[in-house]
Design a protein around this nucleic acid. Structure first.
Lengths: 184, 184
DNA sequence: CCCGTCATGTAATGGGTTACATGATTGC
DNA sequence: GCAATCATGTAACCCATTACATGACGGG
């Protein structure tokens, strides 16, 4: 089971849901995949070229009125096959999410408790914002895009985000109370 | 707020808790920080050299009987100051954890439901293993290392791991049931 | 005799971000 | 006049992993 580059499949997958230009792929990633995947232009454009070279996609130039020219990519049969093949491959090992807050907490004997408290509050606030963003997107999909074929799967990934974010928020709350009790 | 390399502070911090060689730093990371940070030898040894060059640590060669020679690093006053300074800096933006399972789920319209079910089961099993590992370490710290000055902070980071992992397990369970109901 | 532990290190490679370059149109 | 949106692309850089090289000792 050699290391495969998953990012190429992310792009391949996006070609199947109506994102056909580098620009629209980037947009979709930033709005819908951004809680579990992100890609920069520096990867997208070279990768689209690579997919075309591999025969996984075709390219066509389009001139547009009032807008810059664009290149439309279409996934090929070979591309669809590669995507499906990747989809059924077993998931590799669980990854480790680097977490700056936890790293700082780990060494927080060297820091005063108010500062720790401050970090926790700040982090919790960011988590709550994230939670609300996810909840908003879920609501939007449930109402406006409920007939979309892919919608049920999108909801599932959002549920993951909601659930784990809520758990992190709860942990923040508990930890704040815990360290306050120690001080008081 | 320029991008700072956090890994150097991870190593700096480990120098304050009795890990004084590249080898022991690696061990500590693999057993205690591995749920939120990991570093390879390819980073550790060059970074230790860099820290010494910066004046954040001192090096001394030790010959050992029955064991290979080793280099012991000690954090300096300047190093401690740098660590404390980093600790009180605000946390940067929340990071995105790349998640292969979610990426595959997102495009799972192109996959048969049994395969999805299989992925979920597999993932849940791995999460449960992870949960048990964390619980074991927490238990060990609570009983054997409870007088260690850093212990309370270590417990806090483990609580985070336990809580978010449990949430992910719950999500797996729910999602499995949901997709089974759809099939049936 | 081989494996695990202790111990240090480098080179090649991979994966990704950031900054930059270019440029038209629409709306405030 | 300025900012935002649409649109494509590259070069420099950074961070990190993997594989490799070396080698002694103790236990089974």
């Amino acid at each position: 089971m050699s290391k495969e580059n998953h990012t190429q499949y992310a792009i391949l997958g996006l070609l199947t849901i109506g994102c056909n230009t580098g620009y629209s792929i980037k947009q979709m990633i930033d709005t819908s995949l951004n809680h579990f995947w992100k890609i920069s232009y520096g990867q997208i454009y070279p990768m689209l070229k690579l997919l075309a070279d591999k025969g996984y996609a075709t390219v066509e130039d389009f001139a547009q009125e009032g807008k810059p020219d664009k290149k439309e990519y279409q996934i090929t049969a070979a591309g669809t096959q590669a995507l499906k093949n990747w989809l059924k491959q077993p998931i590799s090992e669980l990854t480790v999410e680097k977490n700056e807050l936890l790293l700082k907490l780990f060494f927080s004997r060297h820091q005063d408790p108010q500062s720790v408290q401050h970090h926790l509050e700040n982090y919790q606030k960011k988590l709550e914002e994230r939670y609300n963003t996810y909840a908003g997107i879920k609501e939007m999909i449930s109402t406006q895009l409920k007939d979309e074929e892919d919608a049920p799967f999108w909801i599932i990934t959002l549920n993951y985000g909601l659930k784990t974010t809520q758990a992190a928020i709860d942990w923040c709350q508990e930890t704040k109370e815990l360290s306050l009790k120690k001080e008081g």
